[in-house]
Design a protein around this nucleic acid. Structure first.
Length: 696
RNA sequence: UGCGAGGUAGAGCAGAGGUAGCUCGUCGGGCUCAUAACCCGAAGGUCAGAGGUUCGAAUCCCCUCCUCGCUACCA
């Protein structure tokens, strides 16, 4: 514990090309905020760093599609994202952005230092280039017809209609997204970081030194390290990003994943002149909160960068969460299957803590989890309203009824075993919550908060002060017992405010208001105290902390979700439909006989067939075309077993340029007919002919 | 395809050799200060499936299936 005198907590920088949804909150921002609020309550020296990640290709694409500048895009989403976090009480000490000047300087200097220390390899490779705009094209910038589904607007890395991942070489009629020009290959130079050089260090530091990390994180990292790391390009050809700070680097920017984590450092610089204390002193505990998709960058690449640069602390833990599904389906921003934070805040005003509660208690800490509106309702109504809120409400109501609206005296002389048990439960609860939080088990910690409230309800029930005061005479006789009961319930209420504060900060404040105490009592050192409210103080009238979520609200939200989905689906279909007809109805452009004559089509016989290792759709075939035997790799393994096709006659495009697939050179292509259902059928002569016979 | 994580009651989780447990929900009863808490009772599980080790397996070993991520790959 005393090992660390300072905490630096980061939460993944959301990418500024869309708003944030509840999956982001559950996986990353709420756990981070809970942890930070807990540390602050313990008066730890802590900085909570966040910001938007504003570079990279997808932002430039989005800008192009909407006919605005990338800066417009990031300005828009930085605001939306930042507001969502503020509304939800995510208490960043700074929420910065990677387009800031400080960040550009910091990231460039970081790169330059590594360059000067000779830590990069320069390599040349061929990349697609747009001769009209004079720029290199990332795979995303190349658009063409998808060879699988015929979508005329597939990207060079992926077809968004059929979901298949592609390489630019596969696109039919590729064209530049910027100018419509046909891309050509051109040599380009980039700076690579030889990650393999850091393997010994990473293995020692991570695999040996951090066995306490969560299973999902440790296992993934071990897998990466066991399989061996490779050099990775840390620069890109683009004009949107941080310019590579070298003389011969016109048109080069830092790879977005190189610059983004440095954003944590830049934001700290922006926040405080003492930033170096947090980043460079060994007694700082650095913790990155992220989702599982970011594990490799935060556990492998960024630590390697920090180590390479030198003088930086390394993360002490990276408690990555899994993913949150919505109503049984994966979140999909493109299909609009998501609950957006800015929508929630509008639909459920002043109920941020309900969402914080539900997302924490159903957080995907060990596996993917499901968010449903029904569960949201149940947890709110049965736990927040009925147990937590209800205990505090009964305490306040009874105190006003039976103790004149003032904190009653505690009479030590009649303290009994039940009182002692309740006091012990408070102490016990404190210990459990601390232990859970320090080990990043937020669900468990929050469940314990509710549990303490449950103990309160139980105590109140057993003491039943309302039964002791059925008549004024009875009340006079029993007043000391009533006083003790409500005194303890009020102290417990104060403790619940402290316990709940990291999780439900808005609620904790409301409790303080009711108890007429200053927010300072929320300091963790007061947890377990029985002197939070002073005897004789008159308190405010009770106000309800939570209200029930009604069935029609649940219904409305579920409908909204489906309506959003339909709308999005309709848009895609509308956009795709004409194109689809075009592909099927309109024949390809006329060609001359000479074009046809370029094809060398031969009938061949399959001699051998075997599955290609590490590929689920590929068969490696040996085809006899008379004069020679060709090795052909064909993507038909899902339709045919090797045994059933040996001996079959096929039609082969014999003069197709050879191409390597999974390390095997394919010397030709087998013609297949595909029906609407996607079933493949061989195109072959309807009677056997000599192998090598020409098809004309 | 390889690797990683996961699969325990309707939901969310715990348990890592010794009679399968917790919270919420469901059903029945008691009680009532409260936005129906609390108490008592009940139903609900072939611990993903098959095989093995063991006196004894949710737990250890082997194989298979399913979900998610990373990674491949495709007429």
């Amino acid at each position: 514990m005393a090992k660390f005198n300072r905490y630096l907590i980061t939460a993944a920088l959301p990418y500024a090309n869309g708003p944030v949804h509840i999956g982001h909150l559950a996986g990353c921002y709420i756990p981070a905020d809970i942890y930070v609020r807990y540390l602050r309550a313990k008066k730890a020296d802590v900085k909570f760093i966040g910001g938007t990640d504003e570079h990279g290709v997808p932002i430039t694409i989005k800008a192009m599609n909407e006919n605005v500048t990338p800066q417009d895009i990031v300005d828009k989403y930085h605001k939306i994202i930042s507001d969502s976090f503020t509304d939800m009480g995510i208490s960043f000490d700074i929420f910065s952005r990677t387009t800031n000047q400080v960040h550009h300087e910091t990231a460039a200097a970081f790169f330059k230092k590594m360059y000067d220390d000779g830590l990069f390899e320069e390599r040349e490779s061929e990349q697609y280039y747009d001769n009209v705009k004079n720029v290199f094209l990332a795979d995303r910038y190349i658009i063409g017809t998808c060879p699988k589904c015929g979508n005329p607007n597939a990207y060079g890395d992926q077809c968004e209609r059929c979901g298949s991942s592609l390489s630019p070489d596969e696109l039919i009629n590729p064209r530049s997204a910027l100018s419509d020009a046909t891309p050509v290959k051109k040599l380009t130079k980039h700076w690579y970081m030889p990650l393999q050089n850091y393997e010994p260090f990473l293995k020692e530091w991570l695999l040996e030194g951090h066995k306490e990390w969560k299973n999902n994180v440790y296992g993934q990292c071990k897998s990466w390290l066991d399989n061996g790391l490779q050099s990775r390009a840390m620069t890109r050809d683009s004009n949107w990003g941080i310019k590579v700070p070298l003389p011969d680097a016109e048109g080069k920017v830092l790879y977005v994943w190189f610059d983004a984590p440095i954003g944590y450092i830049s934001a700290t610089k922006e926040l405080t002149p003492d930033w170096a204390d947090y980043w460079c002193k060994e007694d700082t505990k650095l913790v990155h909160f992220i989702g599982k998709d970011n594990i490799v960058f935060h556990c492998i690449i960024f630590p390697a960068m920090l180590k390479a640069h030198g003088n930086f602390v390394l993360p002490e833990n990276v408690p990555a969460n899994e993913f949150l599904n919505i109503e049984g389906e994966k979140v999909s921003t493109s299909r609009n299957w998501a609950v957006w934070v800015h929508d929630y805040v509008k639909d459920f005003p002043d109920q941020q803590d309900v969402l914080r509660y539900v997302l924490c208690s159903t957080a995907p800490e060990t596996k993917d989890n499901d968010f449903t509106w029904k569960d949201f309702q149940d947890r709110n109504n049965n736990e927040l309203v009925a147990i937590f809120g209800n205990f505090i409400n009964r305490t306040m109501v009874l105190m006003h009824k039976l103790c004149g609206g003032k904190v009653p005296v505690f009479h030590m002389d009649i303290k009994d075993a039940k009182d002692d048990a309740l006091i012990a439960a408070i102490q016990e609860g404190k210990k459990k919550i601390e232990e859970s939080l320090e080990n990043f088990r937020f669900r468990e910690a929050l469940a314990e908060v509710i549990n303490v409230a449950r103990e309160g309800n139980k105590y109140l029930q057993e003491k039943a002060p309302w039964l002791l005061a059925k008549t004024p005479e009875m009340q006079a006789e029993n007043q000391k017992v009533i006083d003790n009961c409500l005194h303890l319930c009020l102290q417990l209420t104060g403790n619940l405010a402290i316990f709940a504060n990291p999780f439900l900060p808005f609620t904790a404040k409301k409790i303080c208001h009711m108890l007429k105490v200053v927010d300072r009592i929320l300091d963790w050192e007061n947890a377990g105290s029985l002197k939070l409210v002073s005897v004789g103080y008159s308190l405010r009238p009770p106000e309800l902390l939570f209200k029930k979520v009604e069935d029609d609200q649940v219904k409305a939200q579920v409908e909204k979700l489906h309506a959003g989905l339909k709308k999005s689906a309709a848009e895609t279909t509308a956009a795709a439909a004409p194109a689809e007809e075009k592909v099927e109805a309109e024949p390809k452009a006329l060609i001359e006989f000479d074009d046809f004559a370029k094809l060398d089509l031969r009938v061949g016989t399959i001699l051998e067939a075997e599955k290609v290792a590490k590929a689920d759709k590929l068969l490696k075939l040996l085809v006899d075309i008379g004069t020679e035997k060709r090795t052909v790799v064909s993507g038909i393994a899902l339709h045919f077993t090797p045994e059933e096709i040996i001996g079959k006659q096929v039609t082969l495009v014999a003069n197709l340029a050879p191409r390597k697939m999974r390390g095997i050179e394919s010397q030709g292509m087998i013609l297949m007919a595909e029906n609407a259902a996607g079933k493949l059928v061989f195109v072959n002569p309807n009677a056997a002919v000599e192998p090598g016979s020409e098809v004309r």
